[in-house]
Design a protein around this nucleic acid. Structure first.
Lengths: 342, 342
DNA sequence: CTGTTAGCGCATTCAG
DNA sequence: CTGAATGCGCTAACAG
């Protein structure tokens, strides 16, 4: 490997092309404002020097704002958040924006990360909130940074948001099972106190109440401790004296855990999951489905729109959910599992 | 929502604190080089003004380089690449770097994206190459940008790289099946001409050859056309006059497609997948496993190391693979599927 | 320990 | 259509 070569600047290109720096600049920003011949000459010089305009300098000159947005989420190996990220990336790149992705494992870290992004002058902060106070972002908002909360509201902050129809989803899941004759329907999730689960559970309970099932609380296997595995929660339900005949998984992880535990026991129950997941169709798992990529796209759109209209009313987009019947949610209460492989 | 408020600068803070701009600067860069009392005064002023240092300006002043790295990959909703991204993010954030994520759907777009990142002055470009000529990056390398190829080599470019032990993996998969008595072993993938598949297939063939299976070519269900579904490739194998008794999935997608198609037919075969995937253990799928996050971490490490030592020898990290027996790979040739649910 | 001077690379005034 | 001067926000070098 050879030594380092200095990077060419506007001035270098200008010198080689025999024009002023500003002319070179114009070639990149207002190509029409320059003669075709000079443009050619400049581009020729630029390519010989491998010149790449310095976005840093440009953005600084242009008011200190970049064309990037930040997406901050915990648990970003979860397919759900990834799809959201993909949606954001798609929409952003169409508009000439770049997405920077940051992980926030805990609220402190989240604030650090947001700070770093703000320092980098991202134009928008899209986040899946994990803390319980986002008032510290109010200042940034007033400075023109677009803030969009995804999947959960940002508490103590007036911000645009994209949420799922969680309550409706929880309701649908339970209602479908009720419709197939179930009375003992369990709900599994961990963590349980996050917005999405609270909402979904509320919908779930509403459906049960409507069906006259008043005491389902014993069948809510919820925890708020990462040390408690979802599998163990499911196991607890199945080992109880009066086990459920159906299970609702509060999210993709919970559903998968339920499948895992049921398979481990060589048994089967009615099962409805929240969130689509890769093997759901192959395994005939009925789910409350929605479109996470669309959530990302919507979030990016809200952000970009907010940049155009910094003082407009706060907007909230609710992304719909629907029930996808694949078999697992249609099993009757008396269902007996066929022998499972092995 | 109220109107926009101007952002505070170093100078504003300096004025309010009654010190010079440089002193404020020092508080953020060399906190020890300033008296505790002035530091306090400065921080007090800064927080009242909601001052956030402008990384753009700082990086420009400091030589025009940011503390960010770019990760470019196609198909980034594939869990494999996501895990890689997570590994990169983890390692980078530990070193105070930010990761920007970009999607590259085709080689042209990839080059655009790389250009954009270079213009943004990322310090490193980590990419899963999809094109067949990366000589255009040679210039950037000479300008001090670290380049790391992930999962596949970057053709026509001397760059650090992180690869999997693909050949070994392909070999292992086939060898295990041979060991359990299989002679008619299929290999499924699409696309087929990418580096990883070529390598895995080479290993696969080597194992067959070693077992004296000389004509397995009829059982290679490979395509290079995105329009050809993996499911249909599997279907083609199963419908052939002399179908395989075992299948090797060339990657997570291929394996899942095989499972899907087999389940659809209510049949089962011996099956070994390449790549771990979320439901693999619950479904008892034997796989050639490896650690994608570790690949990401290693890639980030190579990049960061390269920044320290721009002219050192090119390095290549090979991440190992191992066989995980879960049942599906241990079925004998005469295996008859137990009745499948529904 | 602190302030002054100068300039990173670029683009927006204004002239010519 | 092109060029010259000026400054975005910050910090390394040097004074003091």
């Amino acid at each position: 490997m050879t030594g380092l070569r200095a990077r060419a600047t506007l001035a270098d290109v200008a010198r080689l092309a025999g024009v002023s720096a500003k002319t070179v600049s114009r070639v990149y920003t207002h190509p029409d404002a320059v003669t075709a011949v000079t443009r050619e000459r400049v581009l020729e010089a630029a390519s010989r020097l491998r010149f790449k305009p310095n976005t840093l300098a440009r953005d600084l000159r242009l008011g200190g704002m970049t064309r990037t947005v930040g997406f901050i989420t915990a648990e970003f190996t979860n397919p759900f958040y990834i799809q959201v990220a993909a949606g954001i990336e798609q929409e952003c790149s169409q508009q000439g924006y770049t997405m920077v992705l940051a992980a926030s494992d805990d609220p402190d870290r989240e604030q650090q990360v947001i700070d770093a992004l703000v320092s980098q002058r991202v134009r928008a902060v899209l986040l899946v909130p994990i803390g319980d106070d986002y008032s510290f972002l109010e200042g940034e908002r007033q400075h023109g940074t677009a803030i969009v909360a995804i999947d959960r509201p940002a508490r103590n902050l007036l911000a645009d948001s994209v949420l799922l129809a969680n309550r409706e989803g929880g309701y649908l899941a339970a209602a479908e099972l009720v419709r197939h004759g179930h009375r003992r329907i369990a709900y599994v999730c961990n963590p349980a106190s996050v917005f999405t689960q609270v909402e979904r559970l509320a919908g779930f309970r509403a459906a049960l109440a409507e069906a006259g099932i008043t005491d389902g609380s014993a069948l809510e296997a919820r925890a708020d401790d990462p040390a408690v595995s979802l599998e163990s929660l499911v196991a607890g339900l199945l080992d109880a004296p009066d086990p459920p005949t159906a299970i609702v998984g509060g999210n993709n992880r919970a559903t998968i855990a339920a499948i895992r535990e049921l398979r481990r026991r060589g048994t089967e129950l009615a099962l409805v999951g929240f969130d689509e997941f890769e093997m759901a169709d192959a395994l005939d798992i009925s789910v409350i489905a929605h479109d996470p990529m669309e959530m990302g796209r919507q979030a990016a759109r809200l952000a970009l729109h907010r940049l155009e209209d910094p003082t407009g009313h706060t907007r909230q987009v609710i992304v719909g959910v629907h029930y996808v019947a694949r078999g697992s949610g249609e099993r009757p209460p008396a269902w007996t599992a066929p022998p499972v492989d092995k």
